[in-house]
């Protein structure tokens, strides 16, 4: 079986398009790449001569840096275009941007954009491979893959685990990708948060909705908190961040109902004291920094695999 498997994807647009075998294969590949980042000379020639453009229409520190480090460690040439320096503010359409980029013959475009589906639009109009680095409230596949890698690394498996995702499920592309991904890999996903932030039809994605955060966390192997954006208060989706922290924030008392060896995750950046208390974020169970480390390995694996996985 293993020998017959071939990674067939030219683009990484979402977890939805990936099978469980694809995800397993990406995680295996990422694990094998992790060691490269621990060498004194952190560079392999695998993607030498390949051009990677990071096209970011939304601000990002961590994801963009992670992708850039991944590409550079693979010896690709990388270029960054951000919304403030791109033609977007001059009124150029995404399709025109795509056509212009195609003329410069890049191999991979990594795109982050506020509109859901924009990587799909780009993929339809460009010859290069497209990696979705977060589109609107749709998907964030590389984040989900690094989350799954971290869980598999810490727990030895994904199938059969109970994953609790707490917070703003409605506006979180990380939550959407993770619900789809962890469910595909055989885990059970329970979500909780203010009902105003739980979207219609989330059950059809595979998640169980718990009205009480205690029920979602009970017996969980993984507790993942999502970022709450301050402007949600005005929408009006939340009365206050203080009330959110009191009733939905992850604290030590709440964690007692989870499995004793449960791990704590957060896609960052954290609002300390809102989504989780300081002691939880920095405590023994937190794997938040491992997530960041694995992000580079997962992105190296994605770049490598969509380029055909050769010349390793």
């Amino acid at each position: 079986m293993e020998s017959e498997y071939r990674f067939q994807h030219r683009h990484i647009l979402g977890i939805e398009e990936l099978s469980a075998s694809d995800i397993g294969f990406i995680l295996d590949t990422a694990e094998s790449f992790k060691e490269i980042s621990q060498r004194p000379i952190k560079k392999v020639p695998t993607l030498r001569g390949k051009t990677v453009i990071h096209l970011f229409f939304e601000p990002s520190t961590r994801t963009r840096l992670s992708f850039e480090i991944a590409a550079k460690r693979m010896s690709a040439d990388t270029f960054n275009i951000s919304a403030s320096t791109s033609s977007a503010i001059k009124g150029e359409t995404l399709i025109d941007t795509a056509k212009n980029l195609t003329s410069m013959n890049p191999d991979i475009i990594v795109i982050r954009h506020a509109s859901s589906g924009s990587p799909h639009l780009l993929a339809r109009h460009i010859k290069a491979s497209v990696i979705n680095a977060g589109d609107g409230t749709h998907e964030h596949p590389s984040q989900s893959l690094l989350d799954m890698m971290t869980v598999r690394e810490k727990k030895g498996k994904i199938a059969g685990l109970k994953i609790a995702i707490i917070g703003d499920i409605s506006h979180s592309r990380v939550a959407h990708s993770n619900i789809i991904g962890f469910t595909k890999m055989g885990a059970q996903v329970q979500v909780s948060g203010p009902a105003t932030l739980i979207p219609a039809g989330i059950k059809q994605l595979g998640a169980t909705v718990c009205h009480r955060v205690e029920d979602a966390v009970a017996d969980a192997d993984v507790v993942m908190a999502l970022r709450i954006q301050k402007e949600r208060q005005l929408d009006p989706l939340l009365p206050s961040l203080r009330e959110y922290a009191t009733f939905f924030g992850i604290n030590r008392t709440l964690l007692k109902s989870a499995k004793p060896d449960a791990i704590i995750m957060h896609p960052g950046p954290i609002n300390r004291g809102v989504e989780m208390t300081f002691d939880v974020a920095d405590g023994e169970q937190s794997v938040i920094m491992d997530q960041v480390t694995n992000g580079v390995a997962v992105r190296m694996a994605l770049l490598y695999l969509i380029m055909g996985g050769e010349d390793r």
């Binding site: 589109d135 409230t137 998907e139 959407h176 219609a200 989330i202 059809q204 994605l205």
Partner: peptide, 15 residues
């Protein structure tokens, strides 16, 4: 339209 599909696509729904 607001529903499971709008959630899956990450598009804001109209109820």
């Amino acid at each position: 339209n607001e529903g499971a599909l709008s959630t899956r696509l990450g598009l804001r729904g109209i109820p």
